[in-house]
């Protein structure tokens, strides 16, 4: 039996990992629900954001957060362009899975071309910084990631619930024709969702650069667990994503502490299957 300290530290790192999962999954969930696009290239966008953060921050000695401010509009534009392409070629939900699988492979190749397959690590000073709280260590970069995930999740929730645009998105996802008959501009709304979703990938990318070592093949490392988080959280439900991220993050961390790290991936998928059996019809 591990010590209370170890358990506490595992719990903390699980909570923080949950924040990262929620941050990575938020945009995926929004575009799945409101655009009916299952966007695998979201993971490519995240790593594009991560590598750009790494490159610009390293080359110009800038704060990664300053770089993030430039990445957000860039990724927004990329998301809008991608959605315009989907509309142009009338890509449906299942087709989007195939098309974006191709896109993520292209992004991976581009990243490999520019940055090679070597591991890259952003030396920002945040990576190793941590605070001591009693017997526990709080890593600053991970804590910031968690904070941003919560802020973005709450902002998305509030926007969907309290603004006319958010309500229009929900209405349009349910019945596009009826939403149009009441004045909703579905196409421009879809571009807004796509751009916002890609922008969150850019933000997530900066935090991936802060907390992880980058390699092109890592793009695929998170897909499984993030899909579990997105489906468990309920499509288009930002608070659900936060809760699911925390649940999976904490379960994984405790599994690692109590058994061995190799069991961790099993946990997320067991939880996912349990949710799908107990509450079918979530997708």
């Amino acid at each position: 039996m591990p010590s209370a300290n170890l358990l506490g530290q595992s719990l903390l790192s699980g909570i923080l990992a949950g924040g990262l999962y929620a941050l990575l999954g938020l945009g995926l969930s929004l575009s799945w629900r409101f655009l009916r696009i299952i966007n695998l290239s979201h993971f490519g966008f995240i790593f594009l954001g991560a590598y750009l953060t790494y490159q610009v921050a390293t080359s110009f000695h800038l704060s990664p957060f300053a770089v993030m401010l430039a990445i957000v509009p860039l990724l927004f534009a990329l998301g809008v362009a991608q959605q315009a392409l989907f509309v142009r070629f009338a890509v449906n939900e299942f087709g989007s899975l195939l098309v974006t699988f191709g896109m993520v492979a292209i992004i991976e190749s581009l990243i490999q071309y520019f940055w090679t397959a070597d591991f890259r690590r952003l030396e920002s000073g945040y990576g190793t910084l941590s605070y001591r709280i009693g017997p526990l260590f709080l890593p600053v970069a991970e804590a910031l990631t968690f904070l941003v995930a919560v802020v973005l999740g709450l902002a998305a929730w509030a926007a969907l619930r309290f603004t006319y645009l958010g309500k229009a998105m929900r209405a349009s996802a349910e019945d596009p024709a009826m939403a149009a008959a009441f004045g909703v501009r579905e196409r421009s709304l879809a571009l807004l969702v796509a751009g916002t979703s890609a922008a969150t990938a850019g933000i997530a990318g900066t935090f991936v650069a802060l907390t992880a070592t980058l390699a092109p093949a890592q793009i695929y490392a998170w897909i499984g667990v993030i899909f579990a988080v997105v489906i468990m959280g309920g499509l288009g439900n930002p608070l659900g994503i936060l809760a699911a991220g925390l649940l999976i993050g904490v379960s994984e961390a405790l599994t690692m502490a109590l058994t061995s790290p190799s069991w961790a991936p099993l946990v997320s998928f067991t939880l996912l299957i349990a949710v799908l059996i107990l509450r079918p019809g979530r997708v």
């Binding site: 209405a171 019945d175 004045g183 909703v184």
Partner: peptide
């Protein structure tokens, strides 16, 4: 053809969306 997962009041608000 209501927006089924939205509340009564939200459905009404869609009437004055523009």
């Amino acid at each position: 053809r209501l927006f089924a997962t939205m509340s009564v009041e939200e459905n009404l608000e869609m009437g004055c969306y523009p």
